[in-house]
Every structure is written in structure tokens, then in C-alpha cells.
Amino acid sequence: MRRRLKRGWILLASPLLLSGCGSEYVVLHPAGPVAATELHLIELSAAIMTGIILVVWALLAYILVRFRDTPNNRAPYLPNWRGTLWLEALVFGVPVLVLLIMAVPTIKKTYALDHIPSRHPLIIDVTSLDYKWLFEYPQQHVATVNYFYMPTGQPVLFQLTAHSPFGAFWVPNLGGMEYTMPNRVLPLWLEARRPGVYLGRNANYSGVDFWRMTFSAHAVSPAAFQAWVRQVKRTYRPMTEDDYRRLATHFDLVGQETYSAYPSDTFPERFREFTIQGLHYVPTRHP
């Protein structure tokens, strides 16, 4: 009966596996180098692990067929077999080998992602609030709520903090997440190679409406980005202290908002836990 169940599962799973190509699989459709690096590691580990799973399944199926307690079973019965050294060594050695194969790329790629491939990234300061995202551009001096623009082909350094419970900033098409935490500022760099609008969301539970806390990341050509900044400067009013207080203290959902400037003390620069030296984040110590 068990084998029948297993076959049934494969039938059920095949549409799942085939549907893996659809664009709704955001993690599998990277639009930039960070997500691509992560996808590469995902694919590598998935391939190795699938191999192991299949070996165990096959071995189990074989043992079940061969060693069932049926009257006419002619398979050898070894009631005193307690172990064989070479087999035990093999059972220990194979996982070690597999993990070595996994460990090397894990180390390489984790360090690689800690290293911004540009000395002059665009900086966006991100603050998660209940239940909205505030994006501030310290170089361009503009601010947006629940959406942001970024130029393609240029790494963007997101400096993340929260004035709310923990959140997590996640744009799956561009790359993995990083937490936004109160009284801390953490770094994350992402880059878009393909222009497009990518959905981002708060990936950490921070209250009843956290799951509606989405934002759109607009990746546009550098020229279009400059044009957007100029347009914002021209069209919109600056953010006031009152605007910020409203955003930070009302636990509600808002639409997209745009400001041509913002009060400088709205981002807790003093909690920054890193400096950028060359191409690396270097942790700094807190007093």
C-alpha cells in the first residue's frame, strides 16, 4: 500500500515541478546579480539533496520488497548482524563528502554577497513603520512611501531600520531579505539588471496588517531615474515633522506618497552598525 501511496505522490507532484517555470516563482526569476547568486546556491543544493532523497527512497523501497516477513521469502535472514565496519565508515563518509561539496560554495557566496561591487552605490534609507515603508534618498534628498525608484545596472545600498516591531525587507526578484530592527541600522545591497516593477513585502510578522505591507520597486534606466528625481523635486512638497509623526504613530495602511525633501532627523544615523571601506561593510562598535 505504501508504494501505491508514493506513486500517487509523484503524480501529484509532477504539475508542481512543471509549474516551476512560471513567473509567479519569484525566487526562481532573478532580476539582478544578488538574486542570481542566491538562486545558483539554491539550485546547487536542491540538486544534491534530491540525489540523496532518491537514494534513500530507492534503498527503502528495495529493502521493503526484499525483506518483508512473508512465508516464502528467500532473502537471507541475518538475525545476528550488528554492524560491519566498512559499511559504517561509508555511511559516515558519504554525508561528510556531500557537505564538503555544499560548504565551499556556501562560504564563497555568503562572503561575496557581503561585498558591494561599486565604490559609489546609490543609498536608500529604509524605515519600516506600522504598516508602511518609508524610503529616503540621502544623496538626492527625496523621500517616498511604499514605493521607490532605482537605476538599473548600479548597486543600491539599503540602510535598514525600523520604528516599529521587527520587519523584514524582501524583494524576491532582486535578492534575499534583511530585517529592519528598531535601534539598529543594517546594510543590504541589491542591484537590478532588468528594468521592471518588482513586488516587495514585509516578510516578518509585525502586527495585524503586516501582510498588506507591500511596496513596489521600480527599476528604470539611469537616465529615467535622474528624470524621476528631478520631477519629484519639481512637483511635490517636502515632508514635515508632522507628516513623519503621522506616518510613524498611526498604525494604519497608506497608499504611495512622495516628498521632495525630508527632515534629516527622521533616520537614526547614529545606530549605523557598519561603515563602508572600499567594497566591504565593516562593522563598527557601539559606544
Binding site: 542566491e38 543544493s45 534513500v56 527503502l60 557566496k109 555568503t110 534575499g176
Partner: peptide, 24 residues
């Protein structure tokens, strides 16, 4: 057969840079 899948996905989660996408 069930636990081997759970264990394998656990190793996938331990690959740090991949976990940035799986987390939460």
C-alpha cells in the same frame, strides 16, 4: 521517506546565502 526530505531541506536552509531567500 518523509524525514529525509525535511532533513534535506534543512541542509538547503543552512546554505546561508540561499536562506536569505527562504527565510520567513
Amino acid at each position: 521517506p518523509t524525514f529525509v526530505v525535511g532533513g534535506a531541506s534543512g541542509v538547503m536552509l543552512a546554505a546561508v546565502a540561499a536562506d536569505y531567500q527562504y527565510h520567513n
